[in-house]
């Protein structure tokens, strides 16, 4: 499934969609960046409540398919522009990390 299809199915809000056709291959939930870098895989949907620019760097380095900001988190100023520049897909949702994680898992 592509990130765009997933976003539609789960009614996610689009923050930036640079690569809509990117395939989702797995998922990882976490806010501690070193844990994410140690465990998330390329192609994962990464669910987090972190909102600063390090999210973009980690998303690039891990090569996640997209980021989902849970709990209605909004990005810090300037981070969206950075994500657009780096070509990262970011969505947001009011749901908790747990509940959106379960829904993503059900799609995989």
């Amino acid at each position: 499934m592509t990130v765009q299809e997933m976003a539609e199915r789960l009614s996610l809000k689009t923050v930036c969609l640079c690569e809509p056709e990117r395939e989702i291959e797995g998922g990882y939930t976490g806010d501690l960046l070193s844990w994410v870098m140690g465990n998330a895989q390329s192609g994962d949907v990464w669910i987090t409540i972190m909102s600063n620019n390090n999210v973009v760097a980690v998303a690039v380095l891990v090569d996640v398919a997209c980021v989902i900001l849970s709990e209605d988190v909004t990005l810090d100023p300037g981070v969206q522009e950075l994500a657009e520049k780096k070509g990262i897909n970011i969505f947001s949702t009011a749901e908790s990390s747990f509940s959106i994680g379960a829904k993503v898992a059900a799609l995989l």
Binding site: D31, L32, L33, S34, M50, N52, N54, V55
Partner: peptide, 8 residues
């Protein structure tokens, strides 16, 4: 900021 897990 998301650091400090002691995993670096």
């Amino acid at each position: 900021m998301g650091f400090g897990a002691g995993m670096g």
